[in-house]
Design a protein around this nucleic acid. Structure first.
Length: 221
DNA sequence: GCGACAG
DNA sequence: ATCTTGTCGC
């Protein structure tokens, strides 16, 4: 995968790719598994550890996982952090034996200044359905009702770009947006099904834990 | 012009 | 993201 060498090129690439995002699900789309992706960073270096974990949507059971060690070359710039994580995440994805039904990225999809966050980039790059799940919003929203499952729209420049989703009663919402080849309502339903017990979906939790374990193990060497 | 800004 | 102990609660 080609990583732009400048911020200007990175912004241009996102704008160029944004029209490729498909905002509807494939006919008869009924994923049985979901693959979570996350990256852990080392404190003072560019070392990163990526983890991808496939779980059963109905059970939350871990079915398969893969990891990769890499280097974050691109600097952290809000709106461009996908360029830090993409190469290592794609390497880890390639190591899965079974092609994912659905990707769940740790970050935004359409709820992004150029409508092309990490989840969109992952989806367009792989051709797979993808959802963005973020812990903090970049867009405006009103608090959803306290009940589990309630949602409220995410607004950015007059566009509805995602949803604030309450996954647990009276717990801070998470921010769901389309990544690729899915609609927002389906994305929210699937994320809710993956967040039966905790605020974050099981995909995110498992990938987060595995990426941290992988980084620690790498640093011990 | 200045601050804020996914991870 | 990461640096970081204990503590309150289910």
């Amino acid at each position: 995968m080609l990583i732009p060498s400048t911020v200007e090129d990175a912004v241009a690439l996102q704008s160029a790719l944004a029209p490729s995002v498909v905002r509807t699900a494939p006919p008869g789309f009924a994923p049985r598994t979901a693959t979570g992706l996350d990256v852990a960073y080392a404190a003072g270096s560019e070392l990163v550890a990526a983890a991808v974990v496939t779980v059963g949507i109905a059970t939350g059971e871990v079915l398969e996982s893969a990891t990769a060690i890499g280097e974050a070359t691109f600097p952290y710039v809000p709106g461009l952090f996908a360029f830090r994580e993409l190469p290592t995440l794609l390497t880890a994805l390639d190591r899965l034996r079974t092609t994912p039904d659905l990707l769940v990225a740790d970050g935004h999809g359409l709820a992004h200044p150029r409508r092309f966050g990490l989840a969109c980039h992952l989806g367009v790059e792989t051709g797979l359905p993808a959802i963005g799940v973020a812990k903090t919003p970049m867009a405006d929203y009103e608090a959803p009702r306290p009940a589990r499952g309630s949602t409220t729209p995410l607004w950015d420049g007059g566009d509805e770009v995602g949803a604030a989703l309450r996954t647990q009663p009276n717990v801070k919402p998470i921010f769901v947006s389309i990544g690729h080849r899915i609609d927002l309502a389906t994305a929210c339903t699937l994320v809710l099904a993956l967040a039966t017990r905790f605020r974050l979906p099981e995909t995110t939790r498992q990938a987060d834990h595995l990426s941290r374990r992988t980084l620690r193990a790498q640093q011990a060497h």
